[in-house]
């Protein structure tokens, strides 16, 4: 089933579902003011962007920032979990979805970044760049978030098979270990931004730690197994 072409479409739609859910909420499905109504094939709009944002709590931008931030860190964890799950569940075909899930992490991260730009900076285009740099330098939680997202950029760019070929599997793999850095930086970002309730950042921290420990364990085991293999190779020649 995992090899079916349609499974990929299904996973794609699942990855898009959080965004869809938020948009639906903004449009008034599930309470609040109904922005869009579909009746007899006719679509009518009963409100503008202000009203749509108004459906997303009294503080819409905080809501969108938190929502997209939450889903970015979740998708990073999902991405990190693919390889361990392949091994533990004996489902090698899960690899088909890793690239897509990773790209969705980057996608939600970009949405998250744009809410921050929108909230703080866009109304003041002249001071925007300066304000951004000041935040990145002065606010440790922004520094950590930016590092997390920036580290994902080369991974998103080199996610294609063309780039795997160009870099070579080994080098490509080494580069893509950066995702662990993103995971850790994302957790630090989250830990530093909460006011007093650190339960959720600690939970994501624990998940990243377990996934990282699994990979390290697997790596140590394979390393101790390797010298034996190497010794046998020359014996054949």
């Amino acid at each position: 089933m995992l090899r079916n072409r349609w499974t990929k479409v299904l996973v794609f739609l699942l990855c898009l579902a959080p965004l869809g859910w938020m948009v639906a909420r903004a449009l008034g499905f599930g309470g609040g003011q109904t922005i869009i109504a579909i009746q007899g094939g006719k679509v009518t709009f009963n409100g503008g962007i202000e009203d749509a944002l108004g459906n997303l709590t009294a503080n819409p931008l905080e809501y969108v920032t938190h929502f997209t931030g939450d889903w970015t860190v979740r998708f990073i964890v999902f991405t990190l979990a693919v390889t361990p799950l392949r091994k533990l569940l004996h489902l090698p075909d899960l690899i088909r979805f890793r690239k897509m899930i990773g790209l969705f992490a980057f996608f939600y991260g970009c949405l998250h970044l744009s809410t921050w730009l929108f909230l703080d900076k866009l109304f003041d285009p002249a001071g925007m760049l300066q304000g951004m740099l000041k935040d990145v330098v002065k606010r440790p939680f922004i520094t950590a978030g930016s590092a997390a997202l920036l580290a994902m950029l080369p991974l998103a760019i080199t996610s294609t098979t063309g780039w795997i070929r160009r870099l070579g599997g080994k080098r490509w793999q080494r580069l893509h270990r950066l995702v662990y850095f993103s995971g850790i930086a994302a957790v630090v970002h989250y830990y530093w931004l909460v006011k007093s309730d650190v339960r959720l950042p600690l939970m994501y921290g624990a998940m990243v730690a377990v996934l990282l420990a699994y990979r390290m364990g697997a790596w140590l085991i394979s390393r101790s197994a390797k010298p034996a293999q190497k010794r046998t190779v020359p014996a054949v020649t």
């Binding site: 944002l53 909230l119 703080d120 530093w192 931004l193």
Partner: peptide
Amino acid sequence: PRWSQAKETRLPSPFAN
């Protein structure tokens, strides 16, 4: 220490302007 207080958001506006 973690954010500037120079601007504020008057809810439900989305801008800290």
